[in-house]
Amino acid sequence: MAQVSLEGIRKVYPNGFQAVQTTSFTIQDGEFVVLVGPSGCGKSTLLRMIAGLEEITEGTLKIGDRVVNDVDPADRDIAMVFQNYALYPHMTVRKNIGYGLKNRGNPASEIAAKVEDAAKMLNLTEYLDRKPAQLSGGQRQRVAMGRAVVRDPALFLFDEPLSNLDAKLRNQMRIEIKALQRRLGTTAVYVTHDQVEAMTMADRIIVLNAGRIEQIGTPSEIYHNPASTFVASFMGAPPMNLIRAQVEQGEVRINGYDGLMPAPASQNGPVTLGIRPEDVVLDDHGNIPFRVDILEELGAHRLLHGVVGEQPFSVMIGKDDAASTGTATLNLKPEALRLFDPETGRKL
């Protein structure tokens, strides 16, 4: 068990490409941290630097109290689960799980016992003598987990471990991984591009974009108080509505309409206004006209897609609420309004 701290970590590839800009954060002991962002945002590079598979250009990486910049991956006391699982195809499940222990020189009887334990924990006991090719995707995923668990590491690293599974299995494995990590209390860093995984699994989320940290926070903070328009549109499905607006005399006006609301910020001029679709209320007496183009039925609720003053806009309503395509009017919940700088995208 260990805390992990990154101090001024930076990664520049030999070809000059800067994959990760100077970054600092600390992961607490036992915490489940998810690195999330679009592809190419540097999240995998960050993870691989922690694993020791990628050299750190600049900065200090500590696992526990130890600086591990120059420590071999095998000696960092970590375990990693890869996207394609990276199981050794010619070894049985038993050998796959025990290979790391064998290389550490553990006695055979101890390895056997630990492998059995890990297999039991992951419901793999009956598959121990099969080869990876004879297993289903979900079982392979479990073997990869077993390989990580059996080493009892200080730190788990997950590199998009669920993206090769179908949707149903993914939901199930998501819960299993989280439960396992809770039970073992091992610190975990988890990389994904799937914001649902990030929201559901993380104690804390780190949102990355173009090699830079956009925001660090709990899922709730990230969802309700995005630090930038990038986070607002990347996290949450459906994403937050972002439309151009004006702040004049302490009031927000949406372009083209005099839909007036009190402005939380004391600033004048153009702003980007953000509001989650569920914080919008359809109201016959509302002051913002909304043209509904498409009605999306999602079961538990419905989504209305349309435009407000030429700008795309979505509204979420309950499953029993009446709605139809055509024109309607809206009210926005004032406490749910978020204002962003239209130039930088940062929160005001």
Partner: peptide
């Protein structure tokens, strides 16, 4: 051969010679 195999082997503590003999040759 997938890159991750060598990486997994490194994390599993296999040096270059071990990786060659244990993983790559049987593969």
């Amino acid at each position: 051969v997938p890159e991750e195999l060598a990486e997994a082997a490194r994390i599993d503590g296999a040096g270059p010679w071990k990786f060659f003999v244990d993983i790559l040759v049987p593969l």
